[in-house]
Computed example of a mutant assay.
Amino acid sequence: MHPIITRSFGGLTRAYYIRNFLFGLIFPAMLLFVFSHGKAHMAMSVEAFLTVFVAANCFLYPYSRFVYESVVDYIVGRNLFFVNAILMLFVKLMTMLFCWYLAIVIAPIGLAYLYFRNRSLNVA
């Protein structure tokens, strides 16, 4: 396989990728539920765009989440915060939605970082 693909897309552990990929499926499931219960019909071009957008975001979401968690880890460090559980779950859901919706924009940052990190480790 080409080194660029191996070093960037293969840069996350399998368990991390699968876990975040499965969490990322929450949003297409919600979209599918909303669109399947709606009465309006979409144009074929809009439906095709939405399908590609959702598929790309699902595939790239783990890399987007990796960027988000890396930035938060850098800012917060090893500090521990005690907050209301409902508030924390809401914030977690909103950050997941943010990372999923903007995965096409955020993930290339993570892929570039993984490529350069793995290049310096001489991972083939």
Rank of each mutant, 00 (worst) to 15 (best):
N118F: 08
H2F: 14
A43C: 04
M88H: 13
R14C: 00
G38V: 01
I86A: 10
L111C: 06
L89Q: 12
R65Q: 06
A43M: 05
E47S: 10
G11I: 00
R119Q: 13
K39I: 02
F35K: 03
Y17A: 05
H37W: 14
P28G: 00
G24V: 04
S120D: 15
V71L: 14
A48N: 05
L31I: 13
L97K: 03
L89G: 12
H2D: 10
L89V: 10
F59G: 06
F27Y: 08
G38C: 14
I18G: 01
L121W: 03
M42I: 08
L80Q: 08
Y16L: 08
L25T: 00
C58F: 13
A56D: 09
P28K: 01
V83H: 12
R19D: 06
M30Q: 04
S120V: 12
N57F: 13
N122K: 04
A103K: 05
K92Y: 12
L32V: 10
L25F: 15
I26E: 12
D73Y: 11
D73T: 02
V123R: 05
A112N: 01
N122F: 15
A103N: 05
F23S: 09
N122Q: 11
L87S: 13
V83M: 13
S45D: 13
F9W: 10
A40E: 07
H37K: 06
M88T: 06
L114E: 02
F49G: 07
V76I: 14
K39T: 02
T6V: 15
N20G: 00
E69M: 09
W100M: 08
E47Y: 15
F66S: 02
R119L: 11
I26W: 15
F98R: 05
L31E: 12
L87W: 01
V91T: 12
V123K: 09
Y16Q: 02
F90R: 11
G11R: 02
P62A: 07
C58E: 09
F9Y: 06
